[in-house]
């Protein structure tokens, strides 16, 4: 039995990718199952989905903790989610990145493959330029890097996709052709505690959420042209994330760690001095030095 774990962000298509992979395995005559982790439904928040593939019926119904293959739809997740947790020895990490595998930082020594699924999705016009849908290019790459399903089966599974089935099939073939395999750059990093600390007596959550970074969710970020700013403070007033502060003279300053790129400040700015530009994270640079 082969176990695959997908990591993506809400809205990127990780769950659909897991369903397509299971469908492809079925077309190859295998016994597959796929299901998402039931977490919070948040656009931009980390999402996990699972696929099992076997030559005979699968009785297991649990989530996958010791995967053979981990698929990461966005490199930023390498920094914020322990994606390699439990990855089986000799397993494979497949990452959406334009970089060669040797430049991907990984917390354990692991066979690593990369494919520029974002570039493929953009070239094939999948999703929007700011939110490319990368899942089908990743599936093509997965077929080549693991051999667990055939490219034909992957293409065959891409029938009931929400939009552009032909372009998605082409993206899968592109991913199949472009994937590169190698060894990730092993760089032990400070890891999240393996287990949650024991609950304290008294208040359970005493740490402010401002210690967390939420700007990695965004694809666009606001840029303020201060020379045109009238200091009306509308951007500050309407920010749902408290991600804009006013400096002593009343000019807005974006809290780059917390802005999720919703674009309300740009939409509400009366003199239109705020522009939303593509964030580096959206180009796949996030998480790779």
């Amino acid at each position: 039995m082969l176990e695959v774990r997908f990591h993506g962000r809400g809205g990127q298509g990780a769950v659909l990718a897991s369903e397509l992979l299971a469908h492809a395995a079925f077309l190859d005559g295998k016994w597959p199952q796929s299901f998402p982790f039931f977490g919070v439904e948040r656009r931009g928040a980390p999402v996990t989905a699972y696929v099992r593939i076997d030559d005979r019926p699968i009785a297991l119904r649990t989530s996958i903790t010791v995967p053979d293959v981990v698929v990461v739809l966005e490199t930023g997740l390498l920094r914020t989610v322990p994606v390699t947790d439990g990855l089986r020895e000799g397993g494979l990490l497949l990452v959406n990145s334009a970089l060669p595998p040797e430049l991907i930082e990984v917390p354990i020594p692991v066979r690593t493959a990369t494919v520029d699924a974002t570039g493929i999705a953009r070239a094939r016009g999948l999703g929007s330029p700011t939110m490319p849908i990368v899942n089908t290019a990743m599936l093509g790459a997965l077929a080549r890097a693991t051999g667990v399903v055939s490219l034909d089966a992957v293409r065959g599974s891409i029938v009931h996709v929400p939009a552009k089935p032909r372009e998605n099939r082409e993206a899968a073939a592109d991913g199949f052709a472009a994937v590169r395999s190698g060894e990730g750059r092993h760089l032990p990093v400070a890891r999240r505690a393996e287990r949650a600390p024991p609950l304290p007596e008294g208040p359970i959550a005493a740490v402010p959420s401002s210690t967390l970074v939420t700007s990695s969710w965004r694809t666009l970020r606001p840029v303020i042209r201060l020379e045109k700013c009238t200091r009306c403070n509308f951007c500050w007033k309407y920010c749902p994330d408290d991600a804009i502060e006013l400096d002593p003279s009343g000019f807005p300053v974006i809290r780059e760690a917390h802005c999720k790129g919703c674009g309300i400040c740009a939409a509400e700015c009366p003199p239109k001095t705020i522009e939303m530009v593509l964030d580096a994270g959206a180009r796949g640079g996030w998480g790779v030095r």
Binding site: V40, R42, R43, G44, A45, P208, S209, S210, T211, L212, V213, T214, W217, R218, Y238, C239, P240, D241, D242, A243, R255, A257, H258, K260, G261, C262, G263, I264
Partner: peptide
């Protein structure tokens, strides 16, 4: 209300 909360981008309830 601290930033860094887990609302979706543009959430009316967060504001």
């Amino acid at each position: 209300m601290y930033p860094g909360h887990a609302a979706c981008p543009g959430c009316g309830a967060a504001l």
